[in-house]
Design a protein around this nucleic acid. Structure first.
Lengths: 239, 239
DNA sequence: CATCGCCGTTAACAGTCCGTTAACGCGGCA
DNA sequence: TGCCGCGTTAACGGACTGTTAACGGCGATG
């Protein structure tokens, strides 16, 4: 992970996070982006990329589909779990389009290799314009429900101002449910969205995490007011 | 709009609406889509395209950005006003991307000319897969009948704003009847649609559930106004 | 490199809720 | 009036969920 203090950084300069394992491409991207006035940070595999995304809060992310340690789709999905940052995906072959269905995973745009720097820059700029045009309060990084407040940026939860310590999975699950408040999800849906499409464990895991969340969030865990069971279906979060 | 009972839909040929003014491209698109098993309808300008979209209810729309009479963005926006049909936009130059911001307008994907038929087909298929994967009940998920309101996403029912607790089967049965309001169903039909084709129990089960629903929904359960008996046939829901 | 501690997962058990069925009563229709 | 269809109730058995605890892995830490 290279977090070189980026070149001449204007106050208005936007930061691009490049997640790309192929060294030559990564440096070409960084060079050209910097030359065009962007701050650039980079990561060489999926896990580092995810960490960098959460830490650096870039304005745009350029994300390769094929990555060591965690593939691009999974990275994309996890970033999307608590951020609306525009994501431009890079795919090696047109055939991978089928796999991408990337927009479904939450990517905002994609490019098929090989591509010109000119095109990449155009798309990065387009994504930034889009993001700028988006209403400011549209940021889904903060969610509140009664006395409970969620902050995706710091991954913190407070109830009545007091911070509540949640384990990573607990936070992910709670945040997903809160983001889609009012909607019921089956255990399988929750596993797919929160745990990941490649999770093959049993669905009772969800129950246990719900139990723990209730213990920490609900006034009376045996009579939950927010994390509700929908018998025969699954769970939902209500404000 | 057909009012048949919503039954499991079998796989059938999907319809693509092509809205493109350039005749040679339009016919190439139609030819290739048909060759690949799609039904194709087409329109040569924006106004016709919008009409066709509303009339034909296609499964996917391929929409050129530059069109006579009404441009693609406007068509896209108007289609989105009352439909979630996937839209694939075609742009003449990469630079138009700037203008497109197409996804923001509600398009689901786009292609820059020139493109290969192979790529177009891949993207059309990807859009169809996306649409198919989208949870059913994602639209038409809210039904109201007088003071009674149904929400499929949260599986909640309210009467006059107050939430009514229903058991899983009760909700399924009510939702099915409400979705097909005005139509009479025999007990066997209800068992097939609500319980499932593999249910082998007796039909009196339906009666009991109707009874329970009346108890919870009707002002005077002995004189139901919504859940009506059709003697000798079965039941129906009226608004 | 070893150890510790945290977290996620799983299994097991208990309790609750729900769906089904049977039985009886009532009312309409022939 | 007799039969058939429907309303109504209660009870049983099973499915689903709540709850707890133990296990194993993984990263942190020294």
């Amino acid at each position: 992970m290279t977090t070189e203090p980026a070149a001449p950084s204007h106050a208005s300069a936007k930061t691009v996070l490049v997640i790309e394992d192929e060294a030559s491409l990564a440096s070409t991207l960084s060079y050209n982006l910097r030359k065009n006035g962007f701050n650039v940070s980079s990561a060489a595999d999926g896990v580092e990329g995810l960490q960098a995304a959460r830490r650096d809060r870039p304005d745009v992310i350029v994300l390769d589909l094929m990555l060591p340690r965690m593939d691009g789709l999974e990275v994309c999905r996890r970033i999307r779990a608590d951020s609306d940052v525009p994501i431009l995906m890079l795919t090696a072959k047109a055939e991978e389009l089928d796999k991408v269905v990337g927009l479904e995973m939450g990517a905002d745009d994609y490019l098929t290799k090989p591509f010109s720097m000119r095109e990449l820059l155009a798309r990065v700029r387009a994504l930034l314009r889009r993001a700028a045009a988006r209403p400011a309060g549209d940021d889904a990084s903060r969610i509140s429900a009664g006395p409970i407040e969620l902050d995706a940026r710091g991954r913190t939860v407070t109830r009545g101002g007091a911070e509540i310590a949640l384990k990573p999975k607990e936070f992910d699950l709670l945040f997903f449910l809160a983001k889609n408040a009012g909607q019921v999800f089956t255990r399988e849906q929750l596993l797919e969205h929160v745990w990941g499409y490649d999770f093959f464990g049993g669905s009772r895991t969800v129950d246990v995490h719900i139990r723990w969340l209730r213990e920490k969030l609900e006034e009376d865990p045996s009579k939950p007011r927010h994390l509700l069971t929908v018998r025969g279906i699954g769970y939902k979060f209500v404000r």
